[in-house]
Structure formats: C-alpha cells, structure tokens
C-alpha cells in the first residue's frame, strides 16, 4: 500500500481477528506500524518536539506519558499530520508508515489520516445521527460494501452497539459523554484504519466510562495499532504494552511498560512515575 497513489482498500483487516493477523503478517515489511525519525516540531519559536526517534510496534498499545507541555500530544498529532491544522506549526524529520515518509512531497494528508485515525480528548461527534456519525467517514472514503453492516460492526467493536441499536437515527448529542467518545472510536474504526491515535481519550470522562474505554483498548489492539497519550500513569500501566516518557520535548525513555514502571533507566523517569513532579 502506498500513500501517493490511488489504490483500492487493502483486504478487510477488521473482519475477524484471525484474518487480521494473517494480513498483518502479510504486509509486514517491518514490525513497526509507525516509525518517527529525527522528528522536530516547532510552533513559531517554540520547539515542542525535539529530535524524536520512536518506533511504534504493530498491534500493540503504546502509551505516551509526561507532564503538561512535554510535547506528547504534539508528537501524536504529527503521526497523522493533524498538527498542520495549527497555524505556525512546522515539522521536519520523518514519520515512516509502511516504509514511506508521510511528510514527503506528494503525500496527501487526507490519505494519511484515512489510514491513521484519531480520537480526541473531548468527545466530538458530528451534529448528526448516530448512524450517520459512523457512516459518513466510510462513505466519503468510497466504502462500497453494506453500510448497515459496517455501522453495526464498528459500533460492536467499540462496545456501543447494544446501547444505541434502537436509537441509530437519534442525534449523537443525545448520548452521554462516554457513549459519545465510544461513538468517536466507532467512527474511526469504521474506516478500518491501521493505526488509532488517541489523545487523552478519557480525560473528559467519568471513571465508569473510562473503565469501559480502557477495557475496549485490549480488544481493539488485536486489529489496530494504538498510540494513546495520557496524563494518567495508572492508565498507562493498565492499558499499554509499551510506554514512552517525554519531558520538555525530549523522549527520555521508551520501553516495555512494566519494565519502565518497575525499573526506569533514567532518573527523570523515576522521579516522574514516583510522583515527585508533573
């Protein structure tokens, strides 16, 4: 699959877990879903992300932690070129997806975002019906299959189907905050993306809704690679396989989550996870 030319969608990676693994091994040129190389991001004079080298393993959950303003959200948004929407933001360096730099000329950000989806901090469904929220993205991306089936599958994957199956025609705004956030996840997975970027997806939710989304992540990682930015270290510990700790724009340490929390290599990581700052 390439990002610069128009091609049909790849085989249905979201159909069943077994199949997903097959196609995953199929396209596996490298074990990394996303690979950032010497990524620098600046907002005007502010250097938000410095020389980031980060490899995100396929079909795993990677958590990005760090204090406010450390650049973790900025780095996340750079992985599908959403940072370009912020006036004055500049990125240089490389972000490789299937071996191809998403910042190279000729790559359309719309195609990048279609394969690398995003879930935002605050639930932001469209002011449309529940059904339309899920169907819209698939429709504009030329989905040819059975739309009803896709909507149902996507809602099931995001553990929302049972709660909304009788109100698909209702406004998405009538759902609770937690349901809205799961609808946003359904909306993203309806495109059958390869990677899901989540920017503090539970920070605006109550503990019950948070728990639902956290347990959902374990399901989702069988089909998608997930990168989640979180303020909450316990959350990172609970949901992620690998964790990256950032501080003042630098990647301090990246490693197996348990390893990083139990035996941090860097003193700054230890200070942060033991709650001495941040």
């Amino acid at each position: 699959m390439t990002l610069t030319e128009r091609r049909p969608l790849p085989p249905d990676t979201a159909a069943a877990p077994g199949q997903a693994e097959e196609t995953a091994t199929d396209t596996q040129a490298s074990p990394w879903a996303i690979e950032a190389q010497k990524l620098n991001i600046q907002y005007g004079d502010f250097h938000a992300v410095k020389n980031l080298d980060l490899r995100v393993p396929r079909n795993r959950v990677m958590a990005m932690i760090g204090p406010s303003g450390c650049g973790k959200s900025t780095a996340l948004r750079a992985f599908n070129r959403m940072n370009e929407l912020i006036p004055g933001a500049r990125a240089d360096g490389k972000v490789l997806f299937h071996g191809q730099d998403i910042y190279s000329p000729g790559v359309d950000p719309a195609r990048v975002r279609r394969w690398i989806g995003m879930v935002f901090q605050k639930p932001n469904p469209f002011p449309k019906s529940v059904y339309e929220n899920v169907a819209w993205g698939a429709r504009i991306n030329g989905y040819k299959g059975d739309m009803d089936e896709l909507v149902e599958n996507s809602l099931r994957q995001s553990a929302l189907w049972d709660e909304v199956k009788d109100k698909l025609k209702d406004s998405a705004y009538a759902l609770s905050g937690g349901q809205q956030q799961r609808l946003c996840i359904a909306r993203a997975v309806a495109l059958k993306p390869e990677v899901l970027l989540m920017d503090e997806p539970t920070s605006a939710l109550d503990p019950v809704s948070t728990a639902k989304i956290e347990s959902l992540l374990a399901e989702l990682k069988t089909r998608y690679t997930i990168v989640i930015v979180t303020h909450n270290m316990q959350q990172a510990g609970r949901v992620s396989d690998r964790t990256a700790f950032m501080l003042l724009g630098d990647l301090v340490e990246e490693g197996d989550t348990r390893e990083l929390f139990l035996n941090p290599r860097d003193e700054r990581t230890e200070n942060y996870i033991s709650g001495r700052f941040g």
Partner: peptide
C-alpha cells in the same frame, strides 16, 4: 464553529471542501 468539528472531519480523511 468549534475547530474540533473540523478536526474530527479531517481526521477521517476528509478533504477541506468535504
């Protein structure tokens, strides 16, 4: 119109016009 509406549309691979 909140920018989050635009962001959520663009994040689905929509063009600016869409």
């Amino acid at each position: 119109i909140p920018s989050t509406l635009r962001a959520s549309s663009l994040a689905l691979g929509a063009t600016r016009w869409q």
